Simulated scan of single mutants.
Amino acid sequence: MKSKTTFKHEALLDPADIQDLLKAISKGLGKGSLEFSDDKGVLTLEPQGLLYLKVSASEEEDRQQFDIKVRWDKHPKTLSKKLPKISS
């Protein structure tokens, strides 16, 4: 399969199938590698360091939804763990 830089998939699934997908994402986060694939190619992500998490939920009339967004820098900045010297 060809490598690609974006992945998007939409489907109507039952809660058990979505739970399986969320478990696979959780397992991949733990291993430091997530591989998304379809008939158009593969996208491999390698989360590392501190990850930014955004969780939101909403309800409007007959529709409810929640969104989970996780992102990180491919080359996270390394910060000094030493305290600065400050004189007064």
Results as ranks from 00 to 15, higher is better:
Gln64Asn: 05
Glu10His: 06
Gly28Leu: 09
Leu45Met: 11
Thr78Ile: 09
Ala57Ile: 03
Ser56Trp: 03
Leu13Thr: 05
Lys77Glu: 11
Leu22Arg: 13
Ser37Glu: 12
Trp72Lys: 13
Glu61Ser: 12
Gly49Trp: 09
Lys54Asn: 14
Asp38Phe: 04
Glu60Ser: 13
Phe36Cys: 04
Lys82Val: 03
Gln64Ile: 05
Asp62Tyr: 08
Ser37Asn: 12
Pro84Ile: 10
Lys77Cys: 00
Ile25Trp: 08
Asp38Arg: 11
Leu50Met: 07
Thr44Ala: 11
Lys4Ser: 02
Lys77Phe: 01
Leu22Val: 06
Leu34Phe: 03
Thr44Cys: 01
Lys4His: 03
Lys85Tyr: 02
Leu34Val: 03
Gly41Phe: 07
Lys77Val: 09
Glu10Ile: 08
Leu45Asn: 07
Val70Gly: 01
Val55Asp: 04
Thr44Lys: 15
Ala24Tyr: 04
Glu60Trp: 05
Gly30Pro: 00
Leu34Ile: 14
Leu53Tyr: 08
Thr44Pro: 00
His9Asn: 11
Ser87Gly: 04
Phe7Gln: 10
Gly32Trp: 08
Leu45Arg: 11
Ile68Leu: 15
Asp62Thr: 11
Leu29Tyr: 06
Pro76Asn: 13
Asp39Cys: 03
Leu12Asn: 08
Lys54Tyr: 05
Phe66Trp: 12
Ser33Asn: 10
Asp14Glu: 12
Leu45Trp: 05
Thr5Met: 08
Pro47Arg: 15
Asp62Pro: 00
Gly28Val: 06
Ser58Tyr: 07
Leu12His: 05
Ile86Thr: 09
Ala57Phe: 02
Lys82Met: 05
Arg63Phe: 02
Pro84Lys: 15
Asp20Ala: 14
Thr6Tyr: 04
Lys82His: 05
Asp39Tyr: 04
Leu34Cys: 02
Lys4Leu: 12
Leu13Val: 11
Asp67Lys: 15
Glu59Tyr: 07
Ser37Gln: 14
Ala11Pro: 00
Glu59Gln: 14
Glu59Thr: 10
Leu45Tyr: 05
Met1His: 08
Gln48Ile: 07
Leu29Glu: 02
Asp17Ala: 14
Ile86Ser: 06
Asp73Ile: 00
Leu34Thr: 03
Ile18Arg: 14
Leu43His: 06
Leu34Tyr: 06
Leu29Trp: 04
Leu12Cys: 01
Thr44Asp: 02
Lys2Trp: 01
Ala57Cys: 03
Ser26Phe: 03
Asp67His: 08
Lys8Leu: 05
Ile68Gly: 02
Pro15Leu: 10
Ala11Asn: 12
Glu59Asn: 11
Ile18Phe: 05
Asp73Ala: 10
Lys27His: 08
Gln64Val: 10
Val70Gln: 05
Ala11Tyr: 03
Gln48Gly: 06
Lys85Arg: 14
Glu46Gly: 06
Arg63His: 06
Lys8Met: 01
Asp62Gly: 00
Leu50Ser: 09
Ile86Ala: 08
Glu61Asn: 12
Glu61Val: 09
Lys27Val: 04
Leu12Ala: 07
Thr44Gln: 11
Lys82Leu: 08
Ala57Gln: 14
Leu22Pro: 00
Pro76Met: 14
Ala11Met: 02
Leu79Phe: 10
Pro84Thr: 13
Val55Phe: 12
Lys31Leu: 11
Ile18Cys: 09
Ala11Ile: 01
Leu13Lys: 14
Ser87Pro: 00
Leu21Glu: 04
Gly32Glu: 11
Val55His: 14
